[in-house]
Simulated scan of single mutants.
Amino acid sequence: MMSLSIGPADPAFVRETLTDAFGSTMMAIHGALIDARGDGAAAAYRDGYPIALLTYRDDGAGGWEVLSLVSIVPGAGAGTALLDWLAAEAHSQAVHRLWLITTNENINALAFYQRRGWNLTRLDEDAVTRARSLKPTIPLESGGIPIRHELELELNLR
């Protein structure tokens, strides 16, 4: 594996990556449409080319919410590197909680985050069903699993 570096993400790369992954930069979470570009974005680079993107925002309550983590080259360690970078950034700014929302069918994400110490803290039953009124393009199922619920995971940095 070649070495990775973490740095600011180019706005065009952010827009294109989010649109490719989610259909637009807008995500329907928390009962609202939220711009997934967030307050900050970082990319993992290999040989000068971006291979993963992380976007996040300040939640206004002492934590940072991860809005997106997209790996263009799965298995390269870029997602883990970006999460480690975000945790270090948060710690340096006295932020003690990182958290995110994923959906019930996203088994790979649930495993990925839990292997890295994130804990499942909340289930919002039928939140995705309700979110389709805001973003009708949300698929009904993935891999044969109905997409219905939002799951909150967090990493306590204290």
Rank of each mutant, 00 (worst) to 15 (best):
F22M: 13
R122D: 09
G75V: 09
A87C: 13
E16Q: 14
E125P: 06
A43W: 01
A94L: 13
L69H: 00
I147D: 02
L155R: 03
F112V: 02
A43Y: 01
A78T: 06
L67K: 02
T102S: 11
P11L: 11
G38P: 02
Q114V: 06
E105G: 07
R37F: 12
L153F: 07
D39F: 07
I138V: 06
Q93W: 09
S68M: 10
G77D: 09
R37I: 14
D47W: 11
E152H: 12
I29L: 14
G38D: 12
V128E: 00
P74D: 10
G7L: 07
V128W: 00
V73T: 14
R57T: 14
G7T: 04
V128N: 01
L123Q: 04
E154I: 04
D59N: 14
V73C: 09
A12N: 12
I101N: 05
I138F: 01
T55L: 04
L86A: 12
T102Q: 00
T80L: 13
D58L: 08
F13V: 08
S5I: 12
N106P: 02
R132D: 07
H91F: 06
R116S: 07
G77K: 05
L157N: 10
S5K: 13
S68H: 02
A109T: 03
G117L: 07
T17K: 03
L100W: 03
Y113S: 04
I72T: 09
A61D: 11
S3D: 14
P8W: 07
S68C: 05
G62E: 09
V14L: 03
V95C: 13
R115E: 02
P136R: 08
Q93T: 14
T80D: 10
W99Y: 13
L67Q: 01
A61W: 08
L140T: 11
A61T: 11
F13S: 02
T102H: 02
R132K: 12
R122K: 13
R122P: 01
M2I: 11
A36K: 08
D20I: 05
P8F: 14
L86Y: 08
D35A: 10
G40H: 13
A94D: 15
I147Y: 03
G48I: 09
L153M: 10
L98V: 05
L157M: 08
N156L: 15
A87M: 11
G60H: 12
S133M: 11
R15Y: 10
T129A: 05
G38M: 11
D39T: 09
A81P: 03
G31V: 06
L67A: 02
E125C: 12
S92T: 15
L123H: 10
G143Y: 05
V95W: 06
V66Q: 00
S133L: 13
E16I: 00
A9P: 04
T25L: 10
V14H: 00
D20E: 15
L82G: 01
R130E: 14
A32D: 14
L33G: 04
D59Y: 05
H91N: 12
M1F: 07
G77P: 03
L4V: 12
P136I: 08
